[in-house]
Design a protein around this nucleic acid. Structure first.
Lengths: 353, 353
DNA sequence: CCGCGAAATTGGATCGATCCAATCCTAGGC
DNA sequence: GCCTAGGATTGGATCGATCCAATTTCGCGG
């Protein structure tokens, strides 16, 4: 209640002051702030009253120095600007908030040196653990170093190949395989995978899903093109993308940024989406439902992935020797008007490539 | 280089170990890590070599206990899920990263109790300062408490009325005034302001800009409607919004979320945007350029606001007594196809309301 | 070779909470 | 009335870096 400690008094009250004021020892006061069951009800109340009266503020730094835990976790993402990561972080934050853990956030900007720098800083701040969405070009040392340092680490959304750590992610492979199957079921044979130019597991898995479906049906999975992951790049690429020896009847995009850019680009060319050409995005961002015609997309649940990652980290912190766990959330195909049956076959009617 | 300290050795090397290994005193080693100019070149090199050899890790917690600075800042935003805030944070992060400051992030979720809780936590962690985007319902105590605690605080994007603290924001008022003027210049008289349902300075300022322009021309500024700030709510509201005694010829939206929702909703009703009705958004999100017809919007620069907020905080930390500063970035009107001349006057031709 | 000011270095005290082993109560059993 | 078990409490040592005042080293002119 009364937090009107003398303002000019200079020094913030310490646990020592609280103890004195409550007529107990430092050690007992310490037990109270830590909510230990060892103190009696009456003592606890007396100390808490003293804390309120003096306007006591817990000094986490001092505690950390003596104790092992710091009640701090680190989060490193490669691109804060991307709304997808923002939601991911919101999911983590929601979990950590309930545990009273402070989240130290860092943006690696897909820069491996920066990422390493942040990990160093997290160690300096004695973070209890870190969640990393490894930036492009990360290698095994990321995980190995953390192990050496005994720093609990979970990977989220992406993983470094051949590493073993807890992992929370999305079933990119199955999501993309499913989407491909849907297109195939609509009669599409020449499907182009419009990928981003970044090399990481999230891209690799998606591509693998696409290839798996295509090859399962004996179709050519070679239709892959790479773009920068921006609306403008995708929009501008619309015309060149259709200019292939075998013109694709469907475009399967790495994510909705690419898909929405192409959406506009294709409309600019006078094409009818869902009729002349089918278009599928990935992530199912809110705007996918707003554009006309609506963009078919594969819904992912980044918030949930964030929650999973946070829970995995909590578990790892409490049980450093527990078995490795991977939590993969499934995707959901959301059909809208941008997809439709393949146009009547022209030059490729007989199923032979 | 060689960071292969004996893994099982248990204890991490301390400055003391480094000093011993380099043949200097603790105090000198401390000066080296702090990059003090007081040590000689040769000593510095010797100590740095020892640090590398032992795999020394700076203990920020211990330093914080003794020193006053903690090299940590707090950031509190009301809604991490909103991409707008994600970009804002990215801007702050970019500045703090260059200063080697750790960012503790918190999401208040527009919940005043949570916001207060975070501020408490930031004090416990002895943050050097905080940036707050005050959640709805914040009052002067936010700023007054921070002052009492001698905690440097800057407000970003929103401010609590009648408070004096550093502030980094956007010129919402002028942006909205300008947009209103543009619509008036196109002949619009019945303009409806489609607002969000949140009460904070960012809303108030926008509304003020709208009213200022309308009243300057002697038009009725009473056309204001409130919606939940989601695509779906806006989309669903399209039909009821036009159902007013005097049907508006132009809609001026609180932000692009509302505008994009209405964009789709109006198209669903068979209206031609830019002809039958004009639509203006706010923020100029990437998707505004992608929808058809393109959405006219007022561009803001959240990244820059984030940078500004971070710089203000740095300045305040270094000079706690400096004069209050407010940095407002201007907006830019981006005209696209969703706006056009007012349709020929039907029932309101004579300029009288 | 001395002296002197500036530069470089140092030991001890300190920040504030936690750990640990030891001590103090206090009821309840005999 | 004595003893004991176990719950409650406590003082001292400690974590690792920084501050501060004091001391040593160095360079160089006289």
């Amino acid at each position: 209640m009364a937090d009107d400690q003398r303002p000019g008094r200079g020094r913030r009250p310490t646990l020592m002051d609280v103890a004195e004021h409550a007529g107990v020892s430092r050690a007992t006061a310490s037990l109270v702030v830590r909510k230990s069951p060892l103190v009696s009800q009456t003592t606890r109340q007396r100390v808490e009253a003293a804390m309120a009266e003096l306007g006591y503020v817990y000094n986490a730094g001092a505690a950390r120095l003596r104790a092992s835990r710091s009640r701090t976790v680190g989060v490193v993402v490669p691109n804060l600007t991307n709304p997808f990561f923002a939601v991911l972080i919101a999911g983590m934050e929601a979990v950590f908030e309930t545990e009273d853990l402070a989240v130290i956030l860092a943006n690696s900007n897909e820069d491996i040196a920066k990422q390493a720098g942040f990990l160093k800083r997290m160690r300096e701040h004695a973070a209890d653990g870190v969640i990393v969405c490894p930036c492009e070009g990360s290698d095994r040392r990321l995980v190995e170093d953390a192990a050496k340092w005994e720093l609990p680490l979970v990977q989220a959304l992406r993983y470094v190949p051949e590493t073993t750590s807890d992992y929370a992610g999305i079933d990119y492979r199955e999501g993309m395989r499913d989407a491909t199957e849907r297109l195939i079921a609509l009669g599409h044979r020449d499907i182009l995978f419009v990928s981003g130019n970044r090399r990481h597991s999230a891209r690799f898995d998606r591509l693998a899903g696409f290839c798996a479906a295509m090859e399962a049906h004996g179709f050519d999975a070679g239709g892959v093109v790479e773009l920068r992951l921006t609306h403008t790049a995708a929009r501008a690429a619309a015309s060149t993308i259709l200019d292939r020896q075998k013109r694709p009847s469907a475009l399967l995009c790495f994510n909705d940024v690419v898909a929405l850019g192409l959406h506009r680009g294709l409309l600019d060319l006078g094409l009818r989406l869902g009729r002349d050409v089918s278009l599928v995005g990935f992530d199912d961002v809110a705007e996918a439902a707003l554009v006309l015609p609506g963009l078919t997309s594969v819904a992912t649940r980044p918030f949930e992935v964030g929650e999973n990652a946070a829970r995995l980290l909590l578990r790892r912190i409490h049980a450093p020797a527990a078995a490795i766990e991977r939590r993969i959330v499934p995707t959901r195909y959301v059909e809208r008007e941008s997809t439709g049956p393949a146009p009547a076959a022209l030059d490729h009617g007989l199923g032979l490539p």
